[in-house]
Amino acid sequence: MSTAPETAIPVTTKKDWATDQEVRWCPGCGDYSILTAVQLMLPDLGVTRENTVFISGIGCAARFPYYMNTYGMHSIHGRAPAISPGLKLARPEIDVWVIGGDGDMLSIGGNHLIHALRRNVNINILLFNNRIYGLTKGQYSPTSEVGKVTKSTPFGSVDAPFNPISVALGAEASFVARTHDMDRKHMQAMFRRAHAHQGAALVEVFQNCNVFNDGAYDTITKKDVRGHMLIDLQHGEPIRFGPDGERGVALDGRGLATIVDVADVGVDALLVHDEADPDPSVAFALSRLSNGVGRPTPIGVFRAVDRPEYASATSAQLAEAQAAQGPGDLHALLHSQPTWDVS
């Protein structure tokens, strides 16, 4: 049986989702490919522009909303994951996308990020991780590697970095994925999954800053090494990678994820990826395989589990209260304490 929906979603193209504003990222910035991936994907998502909002903080990535012909707010540093839940709670029917970089969301906004994930508000968070502060011109970030020489660390950073996937899993996020700016199809697949997920979704995007941290991911995402270095997680499949699937991931006796040669251990010894595992421990173990430089690194969906979503739980409480008590009666409220009459 097929019936046309009552209000059909208008057919749109990438052009409809782009504004007339000149894009002001540096030529060659990885942000361009992410923007294109999003603008090409949205027409196929079955959503309208007026019901879509992009909210960002501050940083290069945070200029994103200005380029999207939707509703949008370019807010203040770190606060997009704090502001967006308010919008989603007020208007659960609106799609809310949160855009920010590693400094924005893991440093100044780190507290809001973990609480948005913990609370499981249905927002889609795209974390553009270029492992550097770009807009302030090249200081180390909370994802920069130890020893990194930057303007603010001329003798090398002595600051231990975050692994964003580990942070999100530690906060028990219900959807956690990773992708990179060199693979539009993979990005779009992850963004679609994030959008479809009912709850807070975090997608880490490895993004190249060609001005201040060029080539940060070259050792794993360049075309010629990708096959050896990216572990493409597939739900329900043994985790294998390499041009011929000759390597894989197994759990050792302590529950740690380790890289193995399939020829040595056999396919049956490989870890079968279960993104729906209610316990985040194995996903966490996978996230510890690599922080994204120089070693085989998982991409794809680490975790996608159903758990109660905050905005709908809030709406349900309102509906229950109205069903039980009727709509608010202001006169009755004002007279709800003991009263007396003076005549």
Binding site: I55, M73, S75, R79, A82, I83, S84, P85, G86, L87, K88, L89, A90, R91, I94, N111, H112, H115, T314
Partner: peptide, 19 residues
Amino acid sequence: LQAEDEIAAVGAALGASYG
């Protein structure tokens, strides 16, 4: 919404106002 901190509290309120 009992927020995670004072900043998030006003942030969420502003997000709701935008909505």
